[in-house]
Write a protein that binds this DNA or RNA. Structure first.
Length: 153
DNA sequence: AGATTGAGCGGCA
DNA sequence: TGCCGCTCAATCT
């Protein structure tokens, strides 16, 4: 668990690959470590919508240790662009499965923010988020604000 | 192996 | 609006 700028970020590595992370949190969970400070910084930037997730995925070594179906869903979610959203139903249609199955897969996204699962919303409303819908709303709002500002200038 | 459970959706009153 | 049935991968029992 890394501490920067008032946030704690949990990271788990396996064979040099990032396999699991938390979003930036207000309180610490477990032991402190120095490992992966640069990665934690990137995750914090993702959280604050200061960087594009595509760049982060290119920059860091990560591995998805999840079942095949879950991986397919997560790969599909990576195609959603910064500041945009898709519904569970849309993803399901593309993968020929059900919206519930998509939600189930996203629920266990081991790499939140890096895999932008927060950009998948329900048709009527926000849907859920493992860290609470308020967090989801905040992240999406920050991304939208960045786009708005870019378009204005 | 069978039952239950969701970060959902569409239809119908 | 609210309820009901459908869905299907994952998680129990």
């Amino acid at each position: 668990m890394i501490y920067i700028d008032g946030y704690y970020i949990g990271l788990i590595f396996k064979d040099g690959y990032l396999v699991e992370n938390t979003i930036p949190l207000k309180c610490r969970l477990e032991g402190y470590s120095e490992e992966g400070e640069e990665i934690a910084e990137l995750i914090l930037k993702l959280y604050l919508a200061e960087i594009d997730d595509k760049k982060v995925r290119k920059k860091i070594k990560y591995k998805l240790l999840v079942p095949e179906f879950t991986k397919k869903v997560l790969d599909e979610v990576c195609n959603i662009r910064f500041g945009e959203t898709k519904t569970y139903g849309e993803i399901a249609k593309k993968l020929k499965t059900s919206p519930r199955a998509v939600g189930r897969a996203l629920n266990k996204n081991p790499l939140p923010l890096i895999i932008p699962c927060h950009r998948v919303v329900a048709k009527n409303g926000l849907g859920g988020y493992s860290y609470g819908v308020e967090e989801k709303a905040k992240i999406l709002k920050r991304e939208k604000d960045v786009l708005l500002r870019a378009n204005k200038i």
